[in-house]
Structures are given as structure tokens and as C-alpha cells.
């Protein structure tokens, strides 16, 4: 293992830059990892400073190969902005995740990760709007492979995020987080037949499924426990938020695998289609 294959730098600086900062600065994290890592940055000003320096550095790479777009592009952009309203609120002066109302509009708070105002992960985090991720953040680095951060606000009642009570949301999120932050969490990522992927994070017999699957109009994704030759339903995946569904599995029992299939709305007793995902459950 060679974590040390490359040169170190002058004293004191490297410690401020944690291991994912480089990949983050180069946009070399997938969406889920990025969201987790940015949450970590939100909770750690020192890490954030270090990571932002690296991102500023990365943004200069393109200096070596500048290119001029055609003049009509400039005209088109300048014409378009004349009709485009701007966000008006001044951003909050500094970071701090703090109390960010769940309903916060995009305009009122400073981007947690500045420079990424169009970042979907950021928008998801805003919608989610819940403080206190230090623990999760710490775990984010340990359990890097953990995907997902796109907690559906309420996985069981997909259509109705807004009416779900805060308490229910938080309970659910706590369950999800307790899995994602579990020290011994194991991560299984499986590509889905026909596109997309599912990441399953296991903590003991609890699990969180992070499904990144294409929409299936008039159908639903259903999760299955596979136990030898038998299959039983583990529930229906909620409608995705920003393309992803999160599902908390309180107990995987003695199952050896988790499957996902496309089923009629409301689900089926037994799978009626070939599973598009089969993820082994680690022993």
C-alpha cells in the first residue's frame, strides 16, 4: 500500500488537507461522495479552507489552454441576462451549517461549498436542512465509499415530503445516519441492469439502500430480501428525490442478498420481473 508514493509538502500544510480534498477539488468524486464530503467541510472550517485552496488551484489548470468561444455566444449571453432576474439576498457572511430552515429558499444562505451554486447535492442538502453533521462528516472520511446522502425526507411516504412532521423526518434521518456513520459499515455498490446503480450500506443487520435508478413511469421499484431460493418483499422504494431514493432497512434478518425489481404500483407479493439489482449482503 503506498499512501506515501508521492512527495509530501512543506510542514504543516498537508495536515490541513484531508485525503479527499484533492479528488473533491478536481471533481473526481461521484455525487454521493461529494455531498458527504461537502457536509464534512461544512463542519470543519480548517478542512474547508484547505480544500478550497486546492479547488482554487485546480481552477487554474485551464489557464494553459484558453480558448475563445464565438462572438455570438457573448451576444447571446448578454442578451439573456437582461431578461434574467437575479437572486437578491446577500449571502450569509460565513459558513456555518447551523440552523437552516428546511424550507429555505436558495437565495438566503451562503452556499456551503462556495463556488457550487448549481450543485444538486448542495440543493439537496438545503432542502434537507438539518444541522449537526459533525459525526456523519467524521464518518464520511472513514466510510468514503458510502454513497449516498440523498435522504428522501420520508422514504415511506414519498409524495408528501412537506407534510411529514419534522419529528418523523428527524427520526428517519437519524436511522439513516446511524447506519451511515456506523464504524463498521460495509458498502456494496451494484450497477443496475438497464442503467443506474444501487449502493447498500450495511451496519450489522441494518442497512440503507441508496438507489440511483432511472424513473419507471406507472411502476415502482420494489426491494426484496433473497434468502436461498426464497424471496420476500422488503418494501417499496420511495420516489426519488433528485434522481435518488433512500430506503432504510431496519433488519436484513438472515437474508443473503437484496434485490430490486420493477413492479406495478403498490408492489407485488413476489417479483414479477427480473431483478435489475442483486446485491449480496456481507456476512
Amino acid at each position: 500500500m503506498s499512501g506515501t508514493d508521492d512527495a509530501t509538502t512543506r510542514g504543516g500544510t498537508r495536515e490541513d488537507v484531508d485525503s479527499l480534498a484533492g479528488a473533491w477539488a478536481l471533481d473526481a468524486l461521484d455525487d454521493d461522495e461529494r455531498a458527504l464530503y461537502e457536509r464534512h467541510l461544512q463542519s470543519s472550517p480548517a478542512a474547508r479552507d484547505g480544500a478550497e485552496q486546492l479547488r482554487e488551484t485546480a481552477s487554474r489548470l485551464g489557464v494553459t489552454t484558453p480558448a475563445q468561444p464565438p462572438p455570438h455566444l457573448r451576444a447571446s449571453i448578454l442578451a439573456a441576462i437582461a431578461d434574467t432576474p437575479q437572486e437578491r439576498s446577500a449571502p450569509a457572511a460565513s459558513v456555518v451549517a447551523g440552523a437552516r430552515p428546511a424550507s429555505s429558499g436558495r437565495s438566503v444562505d451562503a452556499p456551503a461549498a462556495p463556488g457550487a451554486p448549481v450543485d444538486l447535492a448542495e440543493q439537496r442538502r438545503r432542502r434537507r436542512g438539518r444541522p449537526g453533521y459533525a459525526l456523519l462528516a467524521a464518518a464520511a472520511c472513514a466510510v468514503v465509499a458510502v454513497g449516498g446522502v440523498t435522504y428522501a425526507v420520508d422514504a415511506r411516504r414519498d409524495a408528501d415530503r412537506l407534510s411529514a412532521t419534522v419529528a418523523a423526518q428527524e427520526r428517519y434521518q437519524e436511522q439513516v445516519e446511524s447506519v451511515l456513520t456506523s464504524a463498521g459499515a460495509q458498502v456494496v455498490r451494484v450497477d443496475a441492469t438497464g442503467g443506474g446503480a444501487a449502493t447498500v450500506v450495511h451496519a450489522g443487520t441494518r442497512a440503507v439502500v441508496l438507489a440511483d435508478l432511472p424513473p419507471v413511469p406507472d411502476r415502482q421499484y420494489q426491494l426484496w430480501f433473497v434468502e436461498g431460493q426464497t424471496v420476500r418483499s422488503a418494501g417499496l422504494l420511495p420516489a426519488p428525490a433528485d434522481g435518488r431514493s433512500t430506503f432504510f432497512v431496519p433488519d436484513t434478518g438472515g437474508a443473503s442478498g437484496l434485490g430490486i425489481s420493477v413492479e406495478p404500483v403498490g408492489g407485488s407479493q413476489q417479483p414479477t420481473t427480473q431483478p435489475i439489482v442483486l446485491a449480496p449482503i456481507p456476512a
Binding site: 500500500m1 503506498s2 499512501g3 506515501t4 508514493d5 508521492d6 512527495a7 509530501t8 509538502t9 512543506r10 500544510t13 498537508r14 488537507v17 485525503s19 479527499l20 480534498a21 484533492g22 479528488a23 477539488a25 478536481l26 473526481a28 485552496q53 486546492l54 488551484t57 485546480a58 487554474r60 489548470l61 468514503v144
Partner: peptide, 18 residues
């Protein structure tokens, strides 16, 4: 190994930064 790549990317950027 993934750890090697992470370290490599980070150290490269630190180098560039400096």
C-alpha cells in the same frame, strides 16, 4: 488502490498550490 489515488490527487494539488 483507491487510497493511493486519493493521496496522489491530493498531493499533486498541494504541490501545484505551493
Amino acid at each position: 488502490p483507491l487510497g493511493t489515488v486519493k493521496t496522489r490527487l491530493r498531493d499533486a494539488l498541494i504541490r501545484l498550490r505551493d
